[in-house]
């Protein structure tokens, strides 16, 4: 089995699909840009890690998934949540640590979960998703519903032992799991060219007996096509596979990171030359009216504005919440 390396042609997707893909990418962009500013007010409790610049990867993958499919995510999870259909207000409440957040304000940015859309949780561990997504893939196999499970991690996460155990386990048990490695070039502040010994994340897959493909993670159509094949492989009982998506993060590893490992010019160049939204626009020219995409961006911005205003005004969890749900029956 080989996974497609050629991008999908924009004409192969319906207008509704194209608009939906752009809507999700625009929501992620606006959400993250706003959080970048909100964080500077000091009102967001806990670390946040922003996904801006990587939108095409999460959306390219998740446009192939249903609510009954599963994903596991990383510390940089907002994009995956939005791409999988988590409610933006519920997320914003959660990030502001409010009672009515998706996890009642007890998870925060790094631990957002919403089982109703198959989002099994962001994770404070960079290689946290592959082991649990492999378990969820076993559920999909048991249910016999042709479901799949996607494990998002990055170039940093790709070096963790749990990830190797999960990849081997998925092959041994022939599970419908797609391991997506977002290679944004840096694991925290260390370059992937230093920390990935083989310099080749996808290349490791062969050692586990997994088909793998490398795609341009800033091009929605490239990610979409590779994920389509990988998901189809899983749904048909063909087992696990690997996608390495090369992309760029616009902001630091975490908000507050001084970005000392790259120059301002490099970041400007990334924003200019590797913007997934711009790239999408260039590929749908002639098929979609640009004014419609502008409108989608405005709507996304408005939704984010409202969610911030509501989240800021929302109630904090009460102190008694600190000791409940420790045990289910406590």
């Amino acid at each position: 089995m080989t996974l497609s390396t050629a991008p999908a042609a924009a004409q192969d997707l319906s207008t509704d699909q194209l608009l939906e893909a752009y809507r999700r990418m625009a929501k992620i962009r606006k959400f993250e840009q706003r959080l970048h500013l909100e964080n500077q007010t000091g009102d967001i409790p806990g670390f946040i890690h922003l996904y801006a610049g990587e939108e095409a990867t999460a959306v390219g993958v998740c446009m192939n998934l249903k609510d009954t499919d599963y994903i596991g995510s990383t510390h940089r999870g907002h994009g995956h949540c939005i791409a999988k259909g988590c409610d933006i207000k519920g997320m914003m409440y959660e990030i502001f640590g409010k009672q009515d957040g998706l996890c009642h304000g007890k998870g925060g940015s790094m631990h957002i979960a919403d089982l109703s859309v198959g989002m099994l949780g962001a994770n404070g561990i960079v290689g946290g998703a592959p082991p649990l997504a492999t378990g969820a893939a076993l559920t999909a196999k048991y249910l016999g519903n042709h479901g799949v499970s996607v494990a998002f991690s990055g170039d940093g996460g790709s070096n963790q032992g749990t990830v190797f155990e999960a990849m081997n386990m998925a092959v041994v048990l022939n599970l419908p799991v797609v391991f997506v490695f977002e290679n944004n070039g840096f694991g925290e502040a260390s370059g992937a060219d230093y920390s990935v010994g083989s310099k080749d994340v996808a290349g490791r897959a062969a050692g586990f007996g997994l088909p793998a493909v490398k795609v341009d993670g800033t091009d929605f159509f490239a990610v979409y096509e590779a994920a389509k094949d990988a998901v189809a492989l899983g749904r048909s009982g063909g087992g696990p596979s690997v996608i390495e998506a090369k992309n760029y993060r616009w902001f630091g590893h975490f908000e507050g990171d001084a970005n000392l490992y790259r120059t301002k010019e490099q970041i400007e160049e990334i924003k200019r030359d590797h913007d997934p939204l711009k790239i999408f626009r260039s590929k749908v020219e002639g098929l979609i009216d640009m004014a419609e995409l502008d409108k989608i961006e405005q709507e996304a911005e408005q939704e984010v504005d409202e969610s911030v205003a509501e989240a800021r005004a929302a109630a904090e969890p009460t102190p008694d919440q600190l000791t409940v749900d420790v045990y289910k029956n406590y």
């Binding site: 599963y70 378990g135 048991y142």
Partner: peptide, 26 residues
């Protein structure tokens, strides 16, 4: 074999399976 099965010698992988299975109803 679906309900009682062998795994590789990979304790983190075994426990990771448990997390994913439990979160999805097992």
């Amino acid at each position: 074999e679906d309900r009682v099965f062998d795994t590789p010698l990979a304790e983190s992988g075994i426990m990771g399976l448990a997390v994913g299975l439990a979160a999805t109803g097992w």
